[in-house]
């Protein structure tokens, strides 16, 4: 190994950039492990439990893809990444799939040469205040001091929003969510603003959670989704349709409880195609017919994954909101399996 390391360094110059073009699927199958980039720790989305096993909403996407491709949701090498290292790790081939609460934006998609395969969580920037402030709407926040993470899109969204509404604010720059909690609780700022999911998770940890409220206004669009390298369409398709399979399964009522029974065949041809009883969708992807069945078997459909990681039954307690199925007034909408 040491040999290859040194020779590799010397041979590098000619091969730089444009790495690992195609055939991620072949690499993943050959290594028999999916290298999945996740957050170093974000409540509800990715965190190690007491046994060191990664859990969370973003982690569930990794596990579903690993189950679909390799047949085992544990054949994953989790690579914890920071906001700075995430795109390089993907671009350089250190990971095969990035599932790390990453907002889908134009520049990231087009300029940074990545492919966003879908959205697994529609987030948006919100405000948290103390109830005793007596404010019911973000439009009444004129003159407030605001705790805001520096160098993020939330900072830009905030200044846009206040300018559009002709209001002034006094920013208190902070570095991490943890620091923000300290400042906000110490009363250094009236308002804390970040993604609404983060606000809910933060509020849930307060001793006096009832004394705080999240204002109804959501001032930005933050569609979070899994990302793959640009230029490998087959791999992008696999991740996209694994995610779609989870969403479609909820729409058609396929759950972890009734999956076995549904897989034996149903009257609904769409479910049959999804679960591999009809047609040859799996083969078209380069996988087998049961890829979606295995993906759903890991932790259930999209709704079940949502409920067990960040839903209202968990300490984070997020309502479905925008992330409900399109049939329920949300935005979760899988194209047809046909």
């Amino acid at each position: 190994m040491i040999k290859s390391v040194f020779l590799g360094t010397f041979a590098a110059a000619g091969l730089a950039a444009g790495v690992a073009g195609a055939a991620t699927l072949d690499d993943v199958k050959a290594n028999d492990v999916l290298k999945c980039g996740i957050s170093t720790g974000l409540a509800g989305f990715s965190a190690p439990d007491a046994n060191g096993v990664w859990q969370g909403f973003d982690v569930a996407v990794c596990r579903a893809v690993a189950a679909a491709v390799l047949g085992d949701s544990n054949k994953i090498e989790f690579v914890p990444l920071t906001t700075q290292t995430r795109f390089t790790a993907l671009g350089s081939g250190e990971i095969d799939l990035l599932s790390r609460n990453t907002t889908w934006t134009f520049t990231r998609d087009v300029d940074l040469k990545q492919t966003f395969v879908g959205v697994n969580y529609y987030d948006g920037q919100g405000f948290m205040i103390r109830k005793d402030m007596g404010v019911g709407s973000a439009t009444e926040l004129d003159g407030a001091t605001v705790c805001i993470q520096t160098g993020t899109t939330t900072e830009l969204n905030l200044s846009d929003y206040f300018r559009v509404n002709n209001m002034d604010y006094d920013p208190v720059p902070i570095e991490t969510n943890n620091e923000a909690i300290q400042q906000y609780q110490a009363g250094a700022c009236d308002v804390y603003t970040t993604d609404a999911s983060g606000l809910a998770a933060t509020r849930a940890t307060f001793e006096d959670a009832e004394a705080h409220m999240i204002l109804p206004e959501i001032i930005s669009k933050e569609p979070l989704g899994p990302v793959v390298r640009h230029g490998d369409d087959q791999w992008a398709d696999i991740v996209r349709w694994t995610l779609n399979a989870l969403i479609a399964a909820e729409e058609y009522g396929v759950t972890s409880a009734n999956l076995e029974k549904m897989a034996e065949g149903t009257d609904n041809p769409e479910i049959n195609r999804l679960l591999g009883n009809e047609g040859n969708l799996g083969e078209m992807l380069g996988l087998d017919a049961e890829f979606a069945r295995r993906a759903i078997a890991v932790a259930g459909n999209y709704g079940e994954i949502f409920a067990s990681n960040i839903g209202e039954g968990t300490p984070i307690g997020l309502a479905r909101g925008l992330n409900a199925q399109w049939t329920q007034g949300g935005l979760m909408y899988s194209p047809p399996f046909r």
Partner: peptide
């Protein structure tokens, strides 16, 4: 990562 060949 960019200098080393892919896969190494």
């Amino acid at each position: 990562n960019y200098f080393l060949p892919p896969g190494s």
